[in-house]
Simulated assay, not measured.
Amino acid sequence: MKSLRLILSNPRYFAPAWVFASLNIWFGTWAIYIPTVKENLGIDKSQLGIAIFFLSLGVFTVFPVAARIINWLGVGRATWYGVLLCSFTALLPLVATNYYSLMGSLFLFGASNGLTDISMNTLVTELEKEDKQNFMSAAHGFFSLGGVLAGLGSFLIVYIGNPALHMAIVVFAVLLINYLLHKNYFHITAAPVEKEPFSLKLFKPLLVIGIVSFMVMGGEGAIVDWSGLFLKEISLAPEALWGTGFLAFSVTMTTGRFLGDSISQKIGSVKIVALGSLVATAGYMAVLSTYTFLAIIGFGLIGLGFSVIIPELFRIGGNVKGIESSQGVAFIAGTGYAGFLAAPPILGFLADRYSLMTSFMVLLACVIIVLLATRILRNSRG
Results as ranks from 00 to 15, higher is better:
K129T: 08
M253H: 00
F107H: 11
G104L: 03
V308H: 05
A343C: 10
K271D: 15
I332V: 08
L288I: 05
I25T: 05
A274Y: 13
L364C: 06
G276M: 02
L304G: 12
I118V: 14
V224T: 10
Q47Y: 07
V170E: 12
E239H: 02
N71C: 01
L123M: 12
Y99L: 13
W30S: 12
E130H: 04
S144Y: 09
R378Y: 10
W26G: 01
S355M: 08
S325F: 02
Y159L: 12
N40I: 08
P205T: 08
I70G: 05
A282P: 07
V208C: 04
G318S: 11
I369S: 12
I209E: 15
T122M: 03
P163H: 13
A31D: 14
A150L: 01
S137L: 13
V124T: 05
S105D: 06
P345R: 13
V95K: 06
I177N: 00
S56C: 04
F186Y: 15
A150Q: 06
C86A: 13
Q133L: 03
G42T: 11
G114H: 10
F54H: 00
R378T: 05
S250Y: 14
M215R: 00
H187I: 01
M285P: 03
G256E: 12
L259K: 11
Y81C: 00
H187L: 03
L94H: 03
E194K: 08
V367R: 04
V216E: 09
P238E: 14
G328P: 03
K271M: 14
A150C: 01
S119K: 01
L278C: 06
A286G: 10
I169L: 13
D44W: 02
I332M: 00
T189V: 14
T281M: 09
T255F: 11
N178I: 00
P238N: 14
T254E: 13
I43N: 13
Y13T: 06
V59Y: 06
L207E: 10
V174T: 02
N134A: 13
I52Q: 11
Y100G: 09
L91F: 07
